[in-house]
Amino acid sequence: MPDALLSTRELEAHYGDFQALFGISIDVFPEEVIAIIGANGAGKTTLMRSITGLLRNEPEMVVWKGQSVGGFRADQVAHLGIAMVPEGRQLFQSLSVKENLIIGGQMGRKGPWSLEKVYELFPILKERRNVPATALSGGQQQMVAIGRALMSNPDILLFDEISLGLAPIIIKSIYEALPKIIGQGMSAIIVEQDIAKAVSVSSRVYCLQEGRISLKGRSDELTREAISAAYFGV
């Protein structure tokens, strides 16, 4: 097996006195897509915030290409090539669609993605490029959020709650676009509450429950029952 691209090692996270994550260890290998599933409050978003540096960790708790990066600030983590499509899109409301995309690419990392490529992937964004980003529909906003993350030409892309708050038809089209997005030598972590969707796009799954990993395994080997048990803790 090759070396992991990104790992967490016994990762813990706290909000004040409240401990949200307990000893989380995950690995993501190059060009691999993993899924993280779990109920509300299981700690999925906290894990994403820890990896991206929005929550500070002990340096050795996050390892990137063999380097301990847990102590990095979020902007330093971004420069490594870790990008995130945050929960709830979180577009910049004072920026136009085009500006939101450009700011995603402002680090100048080299790679296949550019403004034109993103417009090719989501033609509607080219049409609406001069509109304030928050004037778009939910689905179009998710496209901007994805495009904004791609613009940094990341080595790994984190999708936090990729389908939360979107209409089923939009979710379907985003999942259909996913292979085109990730199929460029990129790795990905997909955080999802929909178990079936998560299993279908990933090679491996981690299930979180109350801040701990309750199950992990290859997506094609886990049974529905095992996942349900780990998910709901029954």
Binding site: L54, A74, D75, F92, S94, L95, I103, G104, M107
Partner: peptide, 18 residues
């Protein structure tokens, strides 16, 4: 653009490498 992005959402702006 960086000013406006940071003004809008400090956390997310940092994810853009700012």
């Amino acid at each position: 653009r960086a000013f406006r992005a940071v003004s809008d959402k400090q956390d997310i702006a940092q994810l853009m490498g700012l």
